[in-house]
Design a protein around this nucleic acid. Sequence first.
DNA 1: CTGAAAGCGCTTACAG
DNA 2: CTGAAAGCGCTTACAG
Lengths: 341, 341
Amino acid sequence: MASDASENISTSARRPTLATVASAAGVSMPTVSKVLNGRLDVSAATRAKVEQAIRDLRYVPVAGRARSEERFVEIVFDDLLNPYAAEIINGAADAGLGEGVTVIPKRHTGDTPREWARRVSASGRDGIIIVTSVLTSEQIARFREAGLPMVVIDTVNLPSAEFTSIGSTNFTGGVAATDHLLKLGHRRIGHISGPLTLACSVARRHGYRAALDRAGIYDPIEAMGWFSYDTGVREASTWLGRPERPTAIFAGSDQIAFGVMEAARLAGLRVPEDLSVVGFDDTYAAASTSPPLTTVHQPLKEMGELAVRTLMRLRAGEPVASHHVELATRLEVRASTAPVR
Amino acid sequence: MASDASENISTSARRPTLATVASAAGVSMPTVSKVLNGRLDVSAATRAKVEQAIRDLRYVPVAGRARSEERFVEIVFDDLLNPYAAEIINGAADAGLGEGVTVIPKRHTGDTPREWARRVSASGRDGIIIVTSVLTSEQIARFREAGLPMVVIDTVNLPSAEFTSIGSTNFTGGVAATDHLLKLGHRRIGHISGPLTLACSVARRHGYRAALDRAGIYDPIEAMGWFSYDTGVREASTWLGRPERPTAIFAGSDQIAFGVMEAARLAGLRVPEDLSVVGFDDTYAAASTSPPLTTVHQPLKEMGELAVRTLMRLRAGEPVASHHVELATRLEVRASTAPVR
DNA sequence: CTGAAAGCGCTTACAG
DNA sequence: CTGAAAGCGCTTACAG
């Protein structure tokens, strides 16, 4: 057993190096290096000795080329549990696989702009993707100073020319959702937005208004709140108690739509027989509600993919066609909408 | 402008090194190194020159200590879009922040066991967390050979003494779900399991049976399928068409429970007035259904946290108390259950 | 504050 | 197959 000697070494304060492993295994440093890198010109017996020493010493290579060739991209969310996050991470990780880039999701930790830029840059990241975060112009300047390529995935704000961003077609999505309800014969269609401080809420609301206008309906029924279940329950409940209640509601997000469905249940109304409901997002849960939710699909996975590709292009100094790209939303028709009665 | 000289250099084939940056900025290598590492003993003017050169050359440090101190843990899922994944990643990333470890989520790519072990080990990871994957004993042997610390998060299989794993209390959860329904006065309680090839399904089913037994009910109503919405719709629909239908259903997962709620709607039954429904998992969507779902909470976030901490302990050569730990499930009572009528 | 010199951990030809 | 020698990219004292 080599355990006696190796324990001596492993209990010493310093972490083991290639040299430590080499001497423990009774071979030269180049030989250990070859084993580590999967080279084939090492005999089986030697390889076994080296692997044993690596295990005994718990050796982990530290700054070799093997590691250094790897590229890292950090992708920052305000909230990793947001149902968006999973889909965006999925797309980014997929694209990363193709581009040879390792994607690291992080939650924004509340550093100051300078700390943040310094930390990310000092950790040797090849770029950073920021998701729907409130990005100050100071922060952007800091990343620029640090020479750090950056792409913003923003489904919320208006695009800025200061940085490269990826969004989705909110206005068009609002039109599509409302047109769908109009085509089903609905005339009293309510809309519950998310916060109107967010450009995406404004765009969706104006999509709704544009569709109504074209149909000759000039009295929109509008409410507003957070992108939350509770907002949907509260605002829809107000409407559903009235005699002239809407026969359909277009919600500014899936979470709001789920709340609207609950308000219908509490009011003793059935979806879609008594009330049609449309959401916005098409996150994982939308297909599994009862009834399954008709909603505007946001291509979150594709946005994650595009962000990684664009970032690698920026990093390589290649030009990007536009500082902002919007991917198309698409209406996903399920069972929560039906012809008006 | 330094652009002329720097362009010459940046268009050369080799990536820039510290030396390139130093000569472009007209300073020594140690000075560039100091700037890179955020040292304070550099004048503002010099720092600016160096930062400019770094930007011009798109210099990225490659194998310095700054990077090499960072520890990486890979966390592997069969499917990153699984609603589990977001919660586990969240917990792992949190614990990583505390332990100074960077967590990298990956989808299992279908490498052979040897390729997989070699790739992960060659990329200098400090350990690997595997989530509910089908882990062959060969794979375990490969990781062990590579000296790679490993922890398995497994809510599905029986624990093995061959490796360190983290699970949750499935049997107890099944008992709690069923007891809750019994306390509400239900006697005809159906149970729809996931695949009985998975130990977790068996444990939940036996929890259900144990609770019924204790209540003196010896004719369980049981069905089985995938952990899917469609399974819930299909199996519940069969039961709900019968005169002696169950008044409550305990589903083996939230997805199945969502399907059960849909089956109730299709049969013209109300939840919870005509049918109580309990799920298992308590993933993000469970609180947002209509009505909100009573379900057995699995501590997925905590499992992710514990996995990272345990992994770092293994890596440091510290002993772990047990090769398997189960975290407690807990019944989350919402509005999908009510007293029997 | 700045940089010449020594050093660290690892890899790459290449001779045997 | 194996390893002495040279080299790479970066950092760390430390003298000025």
